[in-house]
Design a protein around this nucleic acid. Structure first.
Lengths: 290, 290
DNA sequence: TACCTGTGATACCCGACGGGTATGACAGAG
DNA sequence: CTCTGTCATACCCGTCGGGTATCACAGGTA
């Protein structure tokens, strides 16, 4: 009876599609198949698990408690599977037979900790038998996702912006934060600022980053990347808060003022907790010795 | 070409079996199937990944580098899948429709932190809407495994014995360690001891715990559980080091002597980093307020 | 050398199941 | 009462997972 025969990957993919769309037709389309076999697959899954996952309410579909659990756990499992695929391909694919130099993919928030990254890469390259490092630039908060699904092996993360939950990590650097203001603005003349000073400046409303294709509400300008933000600051339309290392790429129309009470930004090197790769261990050793 | 069609769970199971046995016949037997289809499945897997996983050396099989990667990553993925199955079944299975009280499985090293556990369970039961807690006693080091494959949702772990890598955790308690000696032994008369004092006592060699069915080498007696250890100490054959809370279950033939230089034991409550369960959050809140 | 043994690979067959199309059942909007 | 949108059912087919029988080949062994 309770055979505990494991879920097949395909079933998990089907279920997450339906659970996300809450609509069999759209889910089937997304999966590139017809709707009836999808329905059957979900039914079979529910039968196998002995648990109702979806509530079919004649008009749309909703998740049961168990369905929500499976959606979360299933996503994690699917990530683990694609990570296994990617890392295996990477380990054996490129070079011919064994002996192919190990390759590590390092995910880095574009333009963040640039100097640190330079030093790290230089120091690592100087090591004998160092693995080849591929730098994967990424957006603000996607390092965890990249590590989880195997597109990256190791990442530079920035607390408190990235959560280190679920990863092993080592601290590399701590820095304060600065307010970046239009050079001509009255506040730019100050020696230091507090978060309160800049939280409610009427003529410099905080910019709104695009999140999942949509923008949060508010008065500030809408932006999609850091260059747009830099330009808007230069135009006197907004201000922003950055780690001190951002001074490296400021424009002449920008003025940086230290923030007295902003939480410090801690740069970590982080990797999946179960990693057992020698190449990774070498990189971490190099990083912690910087 | 590079369809990146995901690995099926079955293929992963087959591969890990072969990779562990390094022998197609035995692996097939373990999987309850015949050898030829297993061989074909592995070949197909290698073709799909475009990577050689096993080196067939006419006399036995060995893992390639990519094979080792897939073995590690695949185990993690399989754990994630069985965790998804277990937690989903648990979430929807027991009680009828929704509203069934949440249930959490708490893994605890048997007899460790007993008093803390008592207080935690009492405090939790006093909360309104508290989830039902099932206590799962386990051996010394298996809490991480239980959390990973979903047999448990949360665990009491003891640094530095358990590694917290890959989990979220909160510190609950710190305690010193004690040496537990036969009551009549000369060392038992001391006020305190150091690790050096007890590391090489000829008539009290450290006991050897069974690990994966086998015993490490050495002069000490072989044991399989804590009761056997307690008895051997009472008989004057060995000594042991425990956290202070072990005083609760000492026998009258035992004497506990504080260790001045043993690292403190820190009890944590730990859970999978991706957990999003309200019931779990409630338990953690209760625990940290103790 | 010749043979036996143990190993993984190949050849062939069958039944199960994943997937497609057509259609049904049913609730809600008009 | 019909029309529409939605998921379930019925039925068919091709693929593929699995089994049995057998092959190919390396190492011992007499």
């Amino acid at each position: 009876m309770d055979t505990l025969e494991p879920l097949e990957t395909r079933e998990l993919r089907y279920f997450t599609a339906v659970a996300e769309e809450l609509h069999f037709g759209r889910a089937a389309e997304r999966l590139g198949m017809a709707q009836p076999p999808l329905s059957r697959a979900i039914q079979r899954l529910e039968r196998r698990l002995g648990v109702r996952l979806l509530e079919r309410n004649r008009r749309g579909v909703s998740l049961t408690g168990a369905g929500e659990v499976l959606l979360h756990e299933g996503r994690a499992a699917l990530d683990a599977i694609t990570a296994a695929t990617r890392r295996t391909r990477r380990a054996g694919g490129s070079g011919g037979p064994e002996g192919a130099r190990d390759r590590l993919v390092l995910a880095v928030k574009a333009a963040a900790s640039h100097e640190l990254l330079q030093k790290l890469l230089a120091a690592h390259a100087a090591e004998p038998d160092a693995a080849e490092i591929e730098v994967l630039p990424c957006g603000m908060c996607e390092q965890p996702e990249l590590l989880r699904d195997g597109r990256a092996d190791v990442a530079l993360m920035h607390a408190p912006f990235n959560s280190l939950a679920g990863f092993d990590s080592e601290e590399l650097m701590t820095e304060g934060q600065i307010a970046v203001l239009p050079a001509g603005h009255p506040l730019a003349a100050r020696e230091t600022l507090s978060l309160a000073d800049i939280s409610d400046v009427p003529d410099l409303p905080p910019a709104r980053w695009q999140q999942h294709g949509t923008y949060p509400p508010g008065p500030g300008p809408e932006i999609r990347d850091q260059t747009q933000l830099a330009q808007l600051i230069a135009l006197g339309r907004t201000l922003a808060v950055f780690p001190e290392s951002a001074r490296a790429w400021l424009w002449s129309e920008h003025t940086a003022v230290p923030l007295s009470d902003a939480p410090p930004v801690v740069t970590h090197i982080a990797w999946p907790a179960h990693s057992r790769s020698l190449a990774l261990a070498g990189l971490i050793r190099t990083a912690t010795r910087l």
